[in-house]
Write a protein that binds this DNA or RNA. Structure first.
Length: 314
DNA sequence: AATGCGGGGGA
DNA sequence: TCCCCAGCATT
């Protein structure tokens, strides 16, 4: 067989682009060996269980989600169960997973499922995206992991794997770009089952091997083709644009303090008790106003000559 | 595109 | 200490 075009006839087609290295095969094979045994991957999982796990995992690490997820599903095994629960119970069960607005939205989501989807989780992309607290990532993840459907699952792990293996960069850009989504889409296998497997496998590789710090390249199924390794593992070109989120003394810390106080109190908390929780008055007022606006805290009517008290809603 | 939004644990 | 973690909603 010769690659030389015939001397006559139509002009030769332009040389085809070099065949892209297969990322899917090695990563899926690696996953078959190294996948963690997580409860939301168990055969008896439900779509609702998968959805709950995905919402909890939005910015909270797996090790902290796992026990919370077990307790949550034991208490509210279906959307109808969560929809009927007092919101204060929901926020207390959320405990310290962080970003308690997620708990509020998860309950709103359960109520929408009951009212508009017969108490079931839909497998339709648009229906999922319309649910409170469900964005592009979560909708895709639920489709892939709960229903085994093809979806573009692009989370922080997959972004990092592709930034390294394909772009040769240490870390992806701080904010996700349209081009990244399109590239990820082009990589997703055509078959539903394979696509769902690739989604789980690429995320797992990022979580266990291709980690943000101290990646374990010696254990990586892509090491021989990785552009970042080939380039000598250069530093992060986006480092100058990453701002570290301040924490101490921020409104967020005050909000967290107030929520912890209210979670721990079976009765409404008078204003003066909150005053002791955080001495800086303008900041405390700002945080409280924000919590009230978010619906995470309600003001409880007090006696005629008493200062107001505060509690979790519902 | 940029911000605000919790909390904890490993490097 | 710093930084990262299966993001979302709002501006």
């Amino acid at each position: 067989m010769s690659l030389v075009p015939p001397a006559s006839g139509p002009a030769p087609a332009p040389a085809p682009a070099p065949a892209p290295v297969d990322l899917v095969g090695p990563v899926v094979d690696w996953f078959d060996e190294h996948a963690r045994d997580l409860p939301w991957r168990a055969p008896d999982r439900t779509p609702w269980g998968v959805l709950v796990s995905e919402v909890m995992l939005q910015q909270t690490p797996v090790v902290r989600v796992e026990p919370a997820w077990r307790a949550w599903l034991g208490r509210w095994p279906t959307p109808a169960d969560l929809a009927a629960a007092p919101t204060a119970d929901v926020l207390r069960a959320w405990d310290r997973l962080g970003y308690p607005r997620r708990a509020l939205r998860l309950q709103e989501c359960a109520r929408v499922l009951v009212e508009r989807h017969g108490g079931r989780v839909p497998d339709d992309e648009d229906a999922l995206l319309a649910l409170p607290g469900v964005g592009a990532y979560t909708a895709a993840a639920v489709r892939a992991f709960a229903f085994g459907r093809r979806a573009v699952v692009l989370d922080t792990n997959v972004r990092r794997v592709l930034a390294r293996a394909v772009d040769g960069e240490a870390l992806p850009a701080p904010t996700q770009t349209r081009a990244e989504v399109e590239r990820a889409r082009a990589l997703v296998p055509a078959q539903d089952a394979t696509a769902a497997r690739w989604a789980a496998a690429s995320m797992e590789l990022g979580a266990l091997v291709c980690t943000a710090r101290s990646p374990r390249c010696g254990q990586c199924p892509l090491v021989s083709s990785c552009a970042w390794v080939a380039a000598g593992r250069p530093g992060d070109v986006h480092a100058h644009r990453r701002r570290t989120q301040a924490w101490h003394g921020t409104d967020r810390q005050v909000r967290g303090r107030v929520m912890a106080l209210l979670r721990g109190s079976p009765v409404p908390v008078p204003r003066h008790v909150l005053d002791e929780a955080w001495p800086a008055t303008p900041q405390r007022a700002r945080a409280l106003a924000g919590l009230l606006a978010d619906g995470l805290v309600v003001e409880v009517a007090a006696g005629a000559d008493e200062a107001p008290a505060y509690a979790l809603p519902g």
